[in-house]
Simulated scan of single mutants.
Amino acid sequence: MHSATNPYVNISAYKFITFNNTEERRPEFIAKCQELNLKGTILLTPEGINMFLAGLRHEIDAYMNWLHSDPRFADIIAKESYSDRQPFTKLLVKIKPEIITMRMPLIKPEEGRAPSVEAKTLKRWLDQGHDDNGKPVVMVDTRNDFEVDVGSFDNTIDYRITKFTEFPAVIEANRDALNDKTVVTFCTGGIRCEKAAIHMQNVGFNSVYQLEGGILKYFEEVGGDHYHGDCFVFDYRTALNSRLEATDTTQCFACRAVVTPREQISPWYIAGKSCPHCKKQSRDQVAQGNPNQQT
């Protein structure tokens, strides 16, 4: 909740739209964010824009008003959460070939999005155990495996992907298990699941939806029903609970693994140096025949 103790507004927002002057606009984005003391990351790509920014309320509002002055981005609505300090250390405005790398250039969401399901409707489907046509609903997590381990929807199909480029092959390999179901793809904020759902439509799935706004919008609108654990986020907070509050989950500085509060009790957890996952990696390397690895 935005308050004197949580004055920083953290926004995430994106839009798939033809953005053919990224080089020209990049200096303008940098200048505006610097003027408003905003930090975070903005990706400018030919297929659209993706933003993770934080600042004080009036700074974020001024930025969004400026962004909306470009007709291409006039309808962007940011998802918000709040923190007691600036979660980012610097500002990065990058030009990339894709908002989220899938290496499927035929996907152009602006030419037609996959159907989306809003949080309240999804909750109703999950409450009743089927969609409004009586078909069973299957949740497909499109995030990377370490994100899923922090938390996900109940009974979710988790393909343990390590990068999004693996998604098309995994879906093709599991086509038969999904064909007679209503599939809802989801991710943190909507980007991956939008691309994933469009790809599934393109390859012949006829009952597939994306969760509008992702997990964060679901938390905002209906809370944590049908969800277990927290939601991984890519800033110092590491994970948010269903009230969009930062949790005690952290990330290991050495191996980048997510370290839960329970794992932080381990003697192998030394903040900034090591964690139980580091120890496991060492053991695995020894087991695979690396005699020089220390244990």
Rank of each mutant, 00 (worst) to 15 (best):
I191S: 04
R175T: 01
T162F: 11
E172I: 04
T182S: 13
D176N: 13
C193M: 11
I171V: 14
F186G: 01
K181A: 07
R192W: 06
K163P: 13
A177K: 08
D176S: 14
P168A: 04
K181W: 04
F167M: 10
G190E: 03
G189V: 07
V184Y: 07
F164S: 04
R192L: 04
V184W: 05
N179I: 15
K181R: 10
N174V: 02
E194R: 06
V183M: 06
R160M: 12
C187T: 02
V183R: 00
D176W: 03
R192K: 14
D180N: 14
V170H: 05
K163E: 15
K181H: 10
K163D: 14
P168F: 09
E194Y: 08
R160T: 08
N179H: 12
I191T: 08
F167C: 06
E166N: 08
R175Q: 02
K181S: 05
P168T: 06
T185S: 08
K181I: 02
D176C: 13
G189R: 07
P168S: 12
N179Y: 12
R192N: 10
P168V: 06
E166G: 11
I171P: 00
E166M: 09
A169D: 15
L178W: 00
A169Y: 11
V184G: 08
T185R: 02
A177V: 13
D180V: 01
